[in-house]
C-alpha cells in the first residue's frame, strides 16, 4: 500500500513541477525603420510571446528556426529565410506558439515602416508556456500506476 501512496504523491510532485512558472524576459526597446531586433531564445516546449507597439504603431514579428536564425544573422535580412510564423503590420500580438521541436529559435521584430529616421517603441514579453511536457507525462504515468496498484491491493 505504501508504494502506491508513494507513487501517487510523487506524481503530484511532478504535476507541481510541470507548472513551476518560468521567469520571464521583458524588454521595452526602440527599433528604427531599417533595423531588426533579434532575440535568440531556447524553447523546450511552447513559447508565450506578447508584443505590442507603443502609440498604436505597427510592427512585424517573425519566428525563425535555428538554421534560419543563423542565415538571418549572416545576411542581415529575412530574404533567404522561411519564417515558421510571421505577422506583418500588426499593433499587438499575444499567444502561445507551438513550435515543431525543442531547440533554439529567433524572435525578430522590425518596424513596418522602413524609414531609418523612424523610431518605434515596442514592448516584448517572453516566457515558457506551462505545463512542461516531460514532468506532466510523468505525473500521468505515476498517477495511473499508483491508482492501479491501489485498486489491485484493495480488491486482492
Amino acid at each position: 500500500m505504501r508504494i502506491a501512496k508513494f507513487l501517487i504523491i510523487l506524481g503530484l510532485a511532478f504535476l507541481i513541477a510541470s507548472y513551476v512558472p518560468a521567469p520571464s524576459s521583458s524588454h521595452g526597446n526602440l527599433v528604427s525603420g531599417d533595423r531588426y531586433h533579434c532575440f535568440v531564445v531556447k524553447v523546450t516546449n511552447n513559447l508565450y510571446v506578447d508584443v505590442s507597439g507603443a502609440e498604436n504603431r505597427n510592427f512585424s514579428l517573425y519566428i525563425l528556426d535555428y538554421n534560419d536564425t543563423l542565415i538571418f544573422l549572416t545576411d542581415g535580412s529575412l530574404e533567404n529565410t522561411e519564417p515558421l510564423f510571421s505577422w506583418e503590420n500588426i499593433q499587438q500580438f499575444s499567444g502561445v506558439l507551438s513550435l515543431p521541436e525543442p531547440g533554439w529559435y529567433g524572435v525578430i521584430i522590425t518596424s513596418s515602416i522602413s524609414d531609418p529616421s523612424f523610431n518605434m517603441r515596442y514592448d516584448l514579453y517572453l516566457t515558457h508556456a506551462t505545463p512542461y511536457f516531460t514532468p506532466f507525462l510523468l505525473f500521468v504515468l505515476l498517477e495511473t500506476l499508483g491508482g492501479i496498484l491501489l485498486l489491485y491491493r484493495k480488491y486482492k
Binding site: 510523487l10 513541477a17 510541470s18 513551476v20 531586433h37 532575440f39 535568440v40 517572453l126
Partner: peptide, 26 residues
C-alpha cells in the same frame, strides 16, 4: 516530492536565464 519540485524550480530558472544573456540587436 520536495527534492523533485526544487530540481525543476532551479532548472526552470537556469534554463530561462540563458537567453537573457544573449545580445539582442542586429
Amino acid at each position: 516530492s520536495l527534492l523533485v519540485i526544487m530540481s525543476f524550480y532551479y532548472a526552470t530558472k537556469a534554463g530561462f536565464f540563458m537567453y537573457g544573456e544573449i545580445p539582442i540587436e542586429y
